Amino acid sequence: KELVLVLYDYQEKSPREVTVKKGDILTLLNSTNKDAWKVEVDDRQGFIPAAYLKKL
C-alpha cells in the first residue's frame, strides 16, 4: 500500500472529506484525480486536496 505525508492541516468541508493534521502519515487509496486524493484516516475514507499531500 502507498503512504502519503500530510503537509498542512486540513479541515473537512464536506462529508466526503476527512480532517488531517500536518505530519500525519496516511494510507493512499486513490490518486487518479489530480485535485483530490482519497485516503484512509482512522477507519474513515475520504478526500483531501492533493496539494496537501506528498507521496512517500
Rank of each mutant, 00 (worst) to 15 (best):
D42M: 11
Y10D: 01
Q11V: 14
E17W: 10
Q11M: 13
L28P: 00
L56P: 03
Q45M: 10
K21V: 06
F47A: 04
V18R: 01
R44Q: 07
I48V: 15
Y10M: 01
L5R: 06
S14K: 07
V4M: 01
K55L: 13
G46L: 15
K13G: 08
L53H: 02
E12D: 06
S14R: 08
R16F: 15
G23N: 05
V4N: 01
K38D: 03
V6C: 07
N33H: 10
R44A: 05
K22P: 03
E17L: 05
V20A: 13
K21H: 10
L3Q: 12
S14M: 07
T19R: 05
E12P: 13
P15V: 09
G23W: 04
R44L: 07
L56S: 02
E2H: 13
W37S: 00
S31H: 09
L29F: 03
N30I: 07
A51T: 12
V6A: 06
A50D: 04
S14D: 12
D43W: 07
V41A: 09
I25K: 03
E12V: 10
Y10N: 03
Y8R: 14
V18F: 14
I48Y: 01
R44T: 07
Y10C: 06
K13C: 10
T32K: 10
D35I: 11
R16G: 15
L53W: 01
K22D: 01
L7W: 02
V18H: 05
Q45W: 12
L28S: 01
D35M: 13
A50Y: 03
Y52N: 08
K1C: 14
L53K: 00
I25D: 00
V41K: 14
E12L: 14
K54V: 13
L3M: 11
Q11W: 14
I48P: 02
P49G: 03
T19P: 03
W37L: 02
S31E: 10
K13Q: 13
D24C: 08
K13Y: 06
R44W: 15
I48E: 03
G23S: 01
L29E: 02
L29S: 01
L3I: 08
T19S: 14
I25A: 00
P49L: 06
A36N: 12
T27G: 05
Q45V: 15
Q45K: 09
W37F: 03
P49R: 03
L26N: 01
V6H: 00
P15Y: 08
D43H: 11
D24W: 15
V4P: 01
D9V: 04
Y52I: 14
K1Y: 13
E17I: 05
R16S: 14
D35E: 12
A51H: 14
K54W: 10
T27H: 10
N30L: 08
E17D: 07
K21I: 05
E12H: 08
V20M: 02
K22A: 13
E2N: 12
I25G: 02
S31M: 08
Y10F: 06
F47C: 13
F47H: 06
T19V: 04
T27P: 09
L53I: 04
Y10K: 00
V20Q: 00
Q45S: 10
Y10W: 06
D42Y: 09
A36G: 09
L56F: 08
K34R: 11
F47G: 02
E12I: 13
N33K: 08
Y8G: 07
K55S: 06
D35L: 13
V20E: 01
K55D: 05
Y8F: 13
K38H: 13
T27A: 09
V4H: 00
S31W: 10
N33E: 10
L5H: 02
N30H: 07
V39A: 01
V18C: 08
Q11N: 14
K38N: 06
E40R: 10
Y10S: 02
D43C: 13
D43Y: 09
E2Y: 11
D42W: 09
E17R: 06
K1P: 12
K34G: 11
S31R: 06
L29H: 03
K22S: 07
N30F: 06
D9R: 02
L3N: 05
T27V: 15
A36W: 15
D24I: 05
K22W: 04
G23V: 02
L56H: 05
T27Y: 11
A50P: 10
R44M: 07
L53V: 12
V39R: 00
L56G: 01
E40F: 07
L3C: 13
L5E: 09
Q45G: 04
K13A: 10
Y10I: 02
Q45L: 07
N30Q: 09
Y52F: 12
V41Y: 09
V39N: 00
G23L: 02
D42T: 07
L3G: 02
A36Y: 15
K38Q: 14
W37R: 00
Q11S: 12
A50Q: 07
G23Y: 04
L5N: 01
V4A: 07
K1W: 11
